[in-house]
Design a protein around this nucleic acid. Sequence first.
DNA 1: ATGTAAACGAGACGGTACGTCCCGTCTTATC
DNA 2: GATAAGACGGGACGTACCGTCTCGTTTACAT
Lengths: 224, 224, 224, 224
Amino acid sequence: MKWLTAIFLLAGMVASMRSHPRRAPARTGRPRSAEADAAILGATRAALVELGWSRLTLGDVATRAGVAKTTVYRRWSGKSELVVDAVAELFDELELPDRGSLAADIEGVVLQFAALLERPEARTALMAVVAESTTDVPLRERIRVSIVDRQKRLVLEGRARARARGELPVETDPVTAARAADLIFDMIAGAVVHRALVSCEPVDRHWVGRFTAVLLGGLGAAES
Amino acid sequence: MKWLTAIFLLAGMVASMRSHPRRAPARTGRPRSAEADAAILGATRAALVELGWSRLTLGDVATRAGVAKTTVYRRWSGKSELVVDAVAELFDELELPDRGSLAADIEGVVLQFAALLERPEARTALMAVVAESTTDVPLRERIRVSIVDRQKRLVLEGRARARARGELPVETDPVTAARAADLIFDMIAGAVVHRALVSCEPVDRHWVGRFTAVLLGGLGAAES
Amino acid sequence: MKWLTAIFLLAGMVASMRSHPRRAPARTGRPRSAEADAAILGATRAALVELGWSRLTLGDVATRAGVAKTTVYRRWSGKSELVVDAVAELFDELELPDRGSLAADIEGVVLQFAALLERPEARTALMAVVAESTTDVPLRERIRVSIVDRQKRLVLEGRARARARGELPVETDPVTAARAADLIFDMIAGAVVHRALVSCEPVDRHWVGRFTAVLLGGLGAAES
Amino acid sequence: MKWLTAIFLLAGMVASMRSHPRRAPARTGRPRSAEADAAILGATRAALVELGWSRLTLGDVATRAGVAKTTVYRRWSGKSELVVDAVAELFDELELPDRGSLAADIEGVVLQFAALLERPEARTALMAVVAESTTDVPLRERIRVSIVDRQKRLVLEGRARARARGELPVETDPVTAARAADLIFDMIAGAVVHRALVSCEPVDRHWVGRFTAVLLGGLGAAES
DNA sequence: ATGTAAACGAGACGGTACGTCCCGTCTTATC
DNA sequence: GATAAGACGGGACGTACCGTCTCGTTTACAT
């Protein structure tokens, strides 16, 4: 059973690396306060809701969290990193219950994305950190791992279910499969984000229905 | 011949209103320098390329433009407004030559958008101003007028041509027609932006081909 | 009677030179508005009362006077010069009625100075322009001509009367006489200004009485 | 022994209150740098000498002191307050050695004042801050405590010595005594300042001799 | 229980940019 | 050529945050 232990250890490392990637396990001295971590992330989301991205300051976050500024900087190297982690926690809640058909699952994914983009902290933060990431490669990677991949997981899950149901053919070439998944993901996520944040129109059931119809029709047509 | 003068005055008002919407035509005093306007917008784009959105400062823009800071603030109320106008000029170049078929026209639109998003000034600026606009309604409107509508124009043009060619049925209900156009626009623009800025993958001919196939297939399926 | 005309001409020249020393008599074009001059000087005094020296700006003065900024700059080279001229007009009102004795005349002079220093425009302006004059020689000269000499005139007049009355001996050596007058003037003006502006105590009849007693006692003792 | 600690704390509070009157002793956080204080005050005097009051800027002072602008503003609320403190240090040097007689002591005081007013930093600053104080009551108080009272101390000291020598009668009524001291102080300080800064004539031994003769004569005459 | 080393709160520090105010000059059209 | 209007290049303002630093204090773990 040693391998199971190893897996959990690995999981622990991965989990701790996620939030504080390169920190050694630090055996002596006062350990960092877990409460402080939570308070800071919560304060960050609260500040995002109240102030929006551009008026949010780390000093203010520290004050809201009842924490010194140094305590924030000890954990995060800047505003972008902190906000990514604060918003990423929202994406942990994403779930895709099996709704019985590919169409229903797609609608479920879209509605989940849309609900997230209704939250003001996500609205104001997501575009901002993506904008920052155009000139900051490490940040781009952090966003991919913490946010984008968590979204994409839903799409992959839905596709796997559709295949199991026989609604989609089993793609044998992994490269082609990945390309197809990327395309679908960009189309779903892109359309929802554009509708919600650029066009600023509601992502309601009518829109979702029309969108899903076009997307599914396209998939069917393209596959045949 | 006084009416001629009036027409020219009116034309001047309209022209000046386009760039600085609410400014009265100011009959007395020294007129604003048109050179300064152009120099500032050019300097803004140059600074965006070099520094990116977050490191761009209005003081630096003024210096680059060989202009005093007050001259910038006299025309634009802040960084977001200035950048929207500076980037909007790029969108004036968008053209949609008739490529003979709906599929070819869609590919043309997508490639045009993608080429724009290759430009570093657009990459770094677009997401940033959209992020700002989530907490700034006037800015949202400015973006819509200056940027989004200029993009959407291409889609509308492409649809009109396809109808003329008989590739698309003539929609009689204007509300349904507008909804359909909005959906297509969000799907096209959203997918391209997501691919280019979030997934950070190239929008090349292969991707465009696959995307267009899915979209057109979906349109055909949805319509039948 | 030609010499009388000459005297009046001379007086006119001197008067015009006083306010705008070096201006040529400008024979062509639109003549300068005399109303503007008066309005500017009045507005300057009003602004001094309301804002004090340091918050007074020439733009504000121009607005108050209903005049363009250029109209102010055409007449005065800067804030100090303008304020000196504005305040100097107050010193034109200084009069020394013959009160019958040297002691009474001194008390009269002191009270006149004190009354002037009660006016807020004089309080705030006088020290300020003197401070400026420590690093600005032409300004120093302007202050001497426009303000200091007008004060000193009273002292000289009082001394002449006292001599006529026989209260003071007739000094034959002009150098000694001038030195004595300077000393008395510095003592009177200095004491009043210091009392009013530095110690910020009222220059009332009691203080004036005690001051005059000491000064006159000193003059009597020094002369014998 | 806790009361001893308390006394030292109190002493510290009093000492710090002298330079920054209302600041609490601030037990936590990084303490303020005493070097910065000294550097700023020194830089202020240097800038006054070079530029004069009106061209002195707090930004320039900070640069000269090798300090950030915020470090200046953290300690002083504005130019006037800073300059008062910077110039006040010059008045700490004032000393009145016993020169054996009232006349000699007065001449000593006058020459000390005059020497101070020879220094360009004092020349340009004193009138300026007094001018500001006409519209700024807290500043007036600061000037009184930091500058005027330090000057007046010399006069009071000289008077005490003269009484001890029997040159002046011992005044029993404290109100009358204070009035007399104030009058003498205004006459001495006022005459010197007026001579030096308004008339712009040298305060040399001849002038001091004549001034002292008049003043002492007046005192003698008034007292008898 | 005691030592030690890191985390912690507080806040001062050197900086950068902000957006505003005023300067003194200039460029218009009008008088 | 004087005037009203107002744009212009420029400089300083006082403020807000940045990210770092230096304090004194607290806290868990290793002796």
